[in-house]
Design a protein around this nucleic acid. Structure first.
Length: 824
RNA sequence: GGGCAAGUGGCGGAACUGGCAUACGCGAUGGCCUUAGGAGCCAUUUCCUUCCGAGGAUUGGGGGUUCAAAUCCCUCCUUGCCCACCA
């Protein structure tokens, strides 16, 4: 049996064609209107999109449509983060070329985006794996190279000894290679890095400029950069003519240092081994630690282990000799790779000292001054008073920190220093499917950058994939063999490609100049359109992508190529869509495909439900029954067209006041909800309330007298429903508007404005509390004075009943809301 | 272990600056319409008690501030996310 539902299919097709034909989403460079750059994070083209992905694009589209109606010149572009590992995996598995696989997915996903009714300026589409894009990614690399911000050094990578291949962290499953199950180790390789640490301070400080970013994202970035303030201390090594420097944030505990620990990778370790009588045991220890994969090394499960080197270092504060150990818990790439261990006041040192029987000495006392190393079960890490610290004893440890630092600087045994956790950005990938690093190695000239005019370094198309995942570029002489741009002699090309995060760290600039074969971006255009007014994407990119983009922007700023310091003015991170308690994924089999739902209920329903399901910044559970609810609502909206006359015949003068109030209240509410952080869920619920009120009027008895104003007021209400609904359910909104509105398209109609006079009511209902308990509700004139209000409340029968003859102690009035009568 | 969120009906969630808790939707129940209802419309729906007037309880638990607390403070519990040997 056919259900009587609104003809969503024809409506949606018609309006999508109309928008395209009228080019509503093509940004007009010559327009004098205020610009609005609405950017949704460009997707990795992995194949089918599900409703969880859809949330991202639907939010972005709703924002773009709202801003168009606010009269802005909106730029809403879309592109593809098209390089990356999955394409290579697919190539190996199904014998397709990564490019074919990627372009096929792009085609499919583009069709899905269009079926959602999302409007983009497709003239500006960018595809990161195409030469006209990655040519400029290579150009960005050269800019960093010229500034000394791209450099080569040894770096450790996950290595599968059986496949002879570098593995990404995600290819290491429980310490073993995902393909052949061999135990994965670390291997040092020459790698390209970007010197992001040079920008750590600015990346940290400029977070203050990003007041419109979610606080939690700023906190995550701050923690990731991880600045700590402390002191670098030089410890002379007994019997060696050298010092070991360690960094500490707790210089106040220096008198309690009972041993020092080096990372096994520390360069001094080799010197020790050469002169040690237990060289074999030390070598064995170092080898064991180095054999651990990164995952194992950083796992908390594995117990810390260490070994005494026999060497002793001298504490510069008290000239005491303490033993030097090696331990796997000290990392070479943080601080100096050497740690002074204070077991009494650091939990990790405490556990290590207890395990190996090293002394524990209290140098910070608690309030009760009763800390005793023999009785301690854990380290005392709080503030306290200096103890056993020579002339620094008895002052507070905070004071001690400063005094000791001053002393060290004066006596040249240490200095104040800052360290950051942030590491330089390793951009080399031993992969095929990425932008080739534009570098040439020449026997005579050394490392030579490819000249800008020779870009792009093209990725060869005809390649042969090994099942092990080894990059095929290495063995392609037609790629590797070249001539040196400097001396003309034979030379060899770099075969590493760039991390895909490089591609995505500048794409928002390319949209302004997509297709321009002469430059990466037009400086004038970029400076006019950036920073992005609203960036929208998943919180999983809160750290890396956003940090790298900020970094690249700052580098371009320093090069005078852009005039803004931050690329993204406002950031919105939407929550995930959950199904059956878990994130949607193919492997879990809980994916909700949008195509079926769109076919059954139409795009507007899917869009409306997606926005209604919950606050967009939070995770939300998908419920197919809820989709039906959204569909019911849109059908109710549709039927307003035929109910209009009925409502007009049934409304009284009072009803009209109520409807007009509700109409204008809804305009205000929705505008506030959108402006105040995209609260689409409550915005939609208030449209539902307006529609519900119109239905209530349609179902009551006919009015005694026909109101002259009725047709205009009811028409205004229905038109308002269409306009307010249009960012969320644009197709039905257009259809309703075109049938009863005054123009062709809602997109050419200004966003409605509310009138203050209609927001104010003559009669209001207030709650009456007696001793904070609600006892009555009374209707009063809104204009009543406090005195008159009090009188009216006390005259109410129900109130009188509850008051009895009790004495009124206090009478609180909350204007237009409630009163609270306090009695004995 | 650290950091950040969050805990409200059977469910998703609302409540803006401390001011009528549970808007809106889902589900459920009843009615109307109907040959039929998996359409539509209407009504009820936090829980307990009820003589049907109403009364009492309620925002993870406990305590506090206040005329007034989901909201502020203290404390405990639970869940989720991110980071994690960071010296």
């Amino acid at each position: 049996m056919a259900r009587e539902v609104y003809p969503f299919e024809t409506i949606e097709q018609r309006w999508q064609a109309f928008w395209k034909e009228r080019r509503f989403f093509e940004m007009d460079e010559s327009s004098m209107k205020e610009k609005y750059y609405c950017l949704v994070m460009f997707p990795y083209p992995s194949g089918d999109l599900h409703v969880g992905h859809g949330r991202n694009y639907i939010i972005g589209d709703a924002v773009a449509r709202y801003q168009l109606m606010r009269g802005k010149n909106v730029l809403s572009p879309m592109g593809w983060d098209a390089f990356g590992l999955p394409a290579e995996n697919a190539a190996i598995k199904s014998k397709t070329h990564p490019r074919d696989w990627t372009l096929k997915n792009i085609k499919r996903m583009k069709a899905q985006l269009e079926s959602w009714g999302c409007g983009y300026d497709w003239r500006r589409e960018v595809t990161a794996c195409e030469p006209d894009y990655y040519r400029w990614t290579q150009w960005v690399f050269l800019k960093l190279y010229q500034k000394g911000l791209a450099y080569k050094k040894m770096g450790a990578v996950n290595w599968c000894p059986s496949c002879q291949t570098v593995l990404a962290n995600e290819q290491v499953v429980a310490g073993s290679c995902e393909r052949c199950d061999t135990k994965v180790g670390l291997k040092d390789l020459e790698q390209w890095f970007f010197k992001i640490t040079d920008y750590a301070e600015r990346l940290l400080k400029d977070l203050d400029l990003l007041a419109d970013w979610p606080e939690r994202v700023r906190v995550m970035q701050r923690n990731w950069i991880g600045k700590s303030i402390g002191v670098e201390i030089d410890f002379p090594v007994a019997g060696f003519d050298r010092k070991l420097t360690c960094f500490t944030t707790r210089v106040d505990t220096i008198f309690g240092a009972t041993y020092m620990v080096l990372a096994p990778e520390h360069p001094f370790v080799d010197e020790i081994i050469v002169r040690s009588d237990k060289a074999d045991r030390l070598k064995k220890f170092v080898t064991e630690v180095k054999a651990q994969s990164r995952i194992d090394r950083e796992s908390q499960e594995v117990e810390k282990k260490g070994i005494d080197t026999g060497v002793r270092v001298i504490n510069p504060m008290n000239n005491r000799e303490i033993p030097l150990w090696l331990a796997d818990y000290v990392l070479m790439d943080y601080g100096t790779g050497a740690v002074m261990a204070v077991p009494a006041h650091d939990q990790r040192d405490f556990e290590f000292a207890r395990k190996y029987g090293l002394p524990v000495e209290v140098v910070i006392q608690n309030e009760a001054r009763d800390l005793d190393p023999r009785k301690m079960k854990e380290a005392y890490v709080d503030d306290g008073y200096m103890a056993n610290s020579g002339r620094f004893s008895d002052i507070s440890n905070r004071e001690g920190m400063e005094s000791i630092a001053d002393f060290m600087e004066a006596n040249h045994v240490g200095r104040r220093a800052e360290h950051v956790k942030l590491r330089d950005w390793l951009i080399s990938r031993q992969r095929y499917w990425g932008a080739p690093i534009p570098i040439i190695y020449c026997e005579t000239c050394g490392i030579v950058p490819v000249p800008e005019e020779s870009l792009p370094v093209l990725l060869p198309h005809a390649v042969d994939f090994k099942p092990t995942g080894t990059s095929p570029l290495k063995e392609m002489s037609e790629f590797t063999e070249t001539t040196c741009p400097r001396c003309g002699k034979g030379a060899r090309r770099e075969t590493d490609t760039m991390d895909t995060f490089v591609d995505s760290s500048w794409y928002y600039l390319r949209y302004l100049s997509a297709g321009d074969g002469t430059r990466a971006f037009d400086i004038g255009l970029v400076n006019r359109w950036l920073p992005v007014d609203q960036y929208i994407g998943g919180v999983e990119h809160a750290i890396l992508h956003l940090l790298y983009s900020r970094f690249i922007t700052k580098v371009l700023y320093d090069l005078g190529l852009v005039n803004f310091k931050e690329p993204f003015q406002r950031l919105f991170t939407q929550g995930m869509i959950i199904k059956d308690g878990a994130k949607m994924s193919k492997s879990k089999g809980n994916v909700v495909a949008p195509d079926i739902l769109i076919k059954k209920y139409g795009t507007d329903t899917v869009r409306l439900y997606t926005l209604f399901v919950g606050p967009p910044e939070k995770d939300a559970e998908w419920n197919d029954r809820g989709v039906e609810g959204a569909f019911r609502f849109l059908n109710r909206v549709w039927r307003l067209l035929e109910l209009e006359g009925e409502i007009v015949r049934r409304v009284s003068a009072d009803d009209l006041k109520g409807i007009r109030h509700r109409t204008h209240f809804t305009i205000k509410k929705i505008t506030d909800d959108i402006e105040r952080g995209f609260q689409f869920n409550t915005a939609i619920s208030s449209i539902m309330e307006l529609v519900n009120e119109l239905y209530a009027r349609a179902n009551q008895g006919p009015a005694a007298v026909l109101c002259k104003e009725a047709p205009a007021v009811i028409r205004e209400a229905i038109q308002t429903v269409a306009l307010l609904l249009s960012p969320f359910a644009p197709h039905i909104a257009e259809e309703v508007w075109s049938r009863i509105g005054n123009g062709e398209s809602v997109l050419e109609t200004p966003w409605p404005r509310y009138q203050q006079v209609f927001l104010e009511l003559e009669k209001i209902t207030i709650g009456v509390q007696i001793n904070s308990k609600l006892r009555a509700r009374i209707e009063i004139d809104a204009s009543l004075t406090d005195e008159a209000l009090k009188e009216a409340v006390l005259a109410d029968e129900k109130v009188k009943q509850h008051l009895g003859d009790k004495i009124i102690k206090d009478f609180f009035i909350v204007p237009k809301k409630l009163v609270n009568i306090v009695i004995q």
